[in-house]
Amino acid sequence: MSTDWILPNSPPRAARRAGGALADPPWVRALLTGVALGFVALFLVLPLATVFLQAFSKGISAFGAAIVEPDALAAIRLTLLVAAVSVPLNAAFGVAAAWAIAKFDFRGKSLLVTAIDLPFAVSPVVSGLVFVLLFGAQGVLGPWLQAHGVRVIFAVPGIVLATTFITFPFVARELIPLMEEQGSDEEEAAISLGASGWQTFRRVTLPNVSLGLLYGIVLLNARAMGEFGAVSVVSGHIRGQTNTMPLHVEILYNEYQGAAAFAVASLLAVLAVATLVLKRLLEWRMGRASCAARERGHA
């Protein structure tokens, strides 16, 4: 790994020596490679392996029992529901925001760009508390909601809200640079040929960024299903009702049901691995697509 590096500011004596970094003694190279590999094994491979080892530590039937247990199923169902609402919402918002920011100039644009990043900058606990302050019984809107029998916080809507807030930036962040790089030449061409705004968006803008959009959605989905902090604050932790998978994992672990906790955790781990595979696949296809586009451009 390190053999083809030429360090730009290596000390003069090393530079004078023929070969520079290439001449590092083999044991140095072996040591560096070993440390790097050991680090990866210790911090990435080992934890992931532990999750699966623990999950199956009491056998396959115990694993299955932990997954089909009613509270676990409720947690899985709730997690899927939350993702099913917040992912399309944020995908739609992300596309709209990226489109407005990358293709148009307007006042307050940089403010909007900064605002989109807000959920990344704020601690998830604070994000959760904000919703408690807004919708809680002592909050701004709480008494009105309570009088009308609407439950937001400590119920499914609150969890969806918190998750949507936390995952707000994923798609927009992914699409803005991509759209900016592409510029608006193709859109201008489409409009000059008589396409309406909607047609231009659907036939030109969206297809150009479809892979980037999918990439953003994959990351968004992973975070939506895995979010712990903000959801924990607004959940109320009612078993079988307002516990998502990450919260359920914590509960099981605290009840000394280690194997069951890791069984549910392994589902989240599978999601993580699937996310990475999908991400890699999309990166590869995006690379090819941009090569093809460049060739088309030259022809």
Binding site: Q138, R151, F154, H237, I251
Partner: peptide, 20 residues
């Protein structure tokens, strides 16, 4: 009967905040 568990102070706070 559904159950919710957590630190006692935190749980009281949640009920005050509207946990039903």
């Amino acid at each position: 009967v559904h159950q919710s568990h957590g630190g006692s102070g935190k749980q009281a706070r949640a009920v005050v905040d509207g946990l039903e």
